[in-house]
Amino acid sequence: MTLDMLPLGRSARILSVDWSALVQEEARRLRALGLEEGARIAIAHRGIFGGRDPIAITIGRMTVAVRRAHAGAMEVEEL
Rank of each mutant, 00 (worst) to 15 (best):
M1W: 01
M1E: 12
T2V: 10
T2W: 00
L3C: 04
D4N: 15
D4L: 00
M5Q: 15
M5R: 15
M5N: 13
L6H: 11
P7T: 11
L8A: 05
G9Y: 08
G9W: 02
S11F: 11
S11G: 13
A12F: 05
R13G: 07
I14M: 02
I14A: 11
I14D: 13
I14Q: 12
I14L: 01
S16C: 03
V17D: 08
D18G: 00
D18S: 09
D18H: 11
W19Q: 01
S20R: 12
A21M: 07
L22W: 09
V23G: 05
V23R: 10
V23P: 11
E25N: 11
E25Y: 00
E25Q: 12
E26Y: 07
E26I: 03
E26K: 14
E26A: 10
A27H: 09
A27Y: 07
R28S: 12
R28I: 04
R28A: 10
R29F: 07
L30G: 11
R31N: 12
R31S: 14
R31T: 12
R31W: 08
A32F: 09
A32M: 12
L33Y: 14
L33Q: 09
L33G: 01
L33D: 09
G34S: 06
G34E: 02
G34V: 09
L35R: 12
E36D: 15
E36K: 14
E36R: 15
G38D: 12
G38S: 14
A39T: 07
A39R: 12
A39N: 03
A39D: 01
R40M: 13
I41C: 11
A42N: 06
I43D: 13
I43E: 02
I43R: 13
H45T: 02
H45F: 07
R46C: 04
R46N: 05
R46W: 09
G47L: 05
G47P: 08
G47D: 11
F49W: 02
G50E: 10
G50H: 08
G51T: 15
R52C: 07
R52T: 01
R52D: 01
D53R: 14
I55K: 09
I55A: 06
I55D: 08
A56M: 06
I57T: 08
T58S: 04
T58Q: 15
I59A: 05
I59T: 10
I59Y: 13
G60I: 02
G60P: 01
G60K: 04
G60D: 05
G60E: 03
R61A: 10
T63A: 09
T63K: 13
T63Q: 15
V66C: 03
V66F: 02
V66I: 15
V66K: 02
V66Q: 03
R67A: 14
R67C: 04
R68C: 07
R68I: 07
R68T: 08
A69T: 13
A69I: 12
A71I: 06
A71N: 04
A71W: 09
G72D: 04
G72S: 04
G72M: 06
G72P: 10
G72L: 02
M74C: 06
M74S: 03
E75Y: 03
E75H: 14
V76P: 11
V76C: 08
E77K: 12
E78V: 08
E78A: 04
E78Q: 08
L79A: 12
L79S: 04
L79C: 01
